[in-house]
Nucleic acid binder design. Structure first.
Lengths: 144, 144
DNA sequence: TATCAACAGTTGCATTGTCAACTAATTGCA
DNA sequence: TGCAATTAGTTGACAATGCAACTGTTGATA
């Protein structure tokens, strides 16, 4: 087994542990992980299109359609037509959506601090460096 | 934004990129990620039970039932009754399954090497150290 | 300008995944 | 031994997700 495969397996395993924790935390706010990400990105980019959101969420646009449908049904997101482009939607958080987003983001940040407390600050920084480089490299592969 | 959240976001994004790549690579072999893992484990433990496979795949046994049904329909896996325990199945790769497994494992390992080539060996080792520590820490949280 | 390609979003379908209920077989214990 | 509890696997209901095909809109160009 090569180093690359060990790294790969580790990354996958850590993801599953993080994701499992997320599911529990977010479930207590009646959110799924996907809905949480949608709320997050919509707060960062008010008025964004569905396609743009799909790119940020790294998922298929059909999936995004349905996630937004659910959030709209819950009164957290509003969809309006684009002013000039008849194909495009403008997505916005409702007031309720913004309030929920603020609460959940705070809870999630606190949860992350707790989770990553297990490693020292220096190691966090090292890890951050390595992961950043890895991410850039992987993104580069997608282009080339 | 705290370091912890940056780390978290990086890990998630890297996972999604890896997963997307996996889906493409495995798709070219007519495999899904779940089927790939099933082939992998079945090759390591010939004759294993469905329940055992479920544990290794970290998923519900009903899901495993259906994944195996699909693989069997494709002629990659054979199911036979256990010699002494009438409840239990014995799962085996067919010859075709073994050949496919060998090819796909090699392709996946090569793909991983290519993907992780973007960072130097020393950095890979550092990353591995940090991730290992993180994994242990996260596991610790689950217990405590 | 008329047409054709590209794009945004939706819908249908298959796979994956969970949970709960079920069947059949085994095990344990009174 | 015989009955109750456990175990292996399957099935059904449902949600999330990806892919492919579709509709309607925009844009580019001949």
């Amino acid at each position: 087994m090569t180093d690359a495969t060990i790294l790969y397996d580790l990354l996958k395993e850590i993801f599953f542990i993080l994701d499992d924790g997320d599911r529990r935390l977010l479930g207590s706010y009646n959110l799924t992980v996907a809905r949480y990400y949608a709320l997050f990105h919509l707060g960062e980019h008010p008025g964004m299109s569905l396609r743009h959101l799909s790119e940020l969420m790294l998922c298929d646009k059909s999936n995004t359609t349905r996630i937004i449908q659910g959030l709209a049904a819950d009164g957290l997101v509003a969809r309006s037509p684009h002013e000039t482009d008849g194909r495009t939607l403008r997505l916005h958080l409702t007031d309720e959506g913004q309030q929920l987003r603020a609460r959940v983001l705070a809870a999630h940040a606190a949860y992350n601090r707790k989770r990553f407390d297990c490693i020292e600050q220096v190691e966090q920084d090292n890890l951050l460096d390595g992961l950043l480089k890895l991410k850039e490299g992987l993104r580069g592969l997608l282009q080339g």
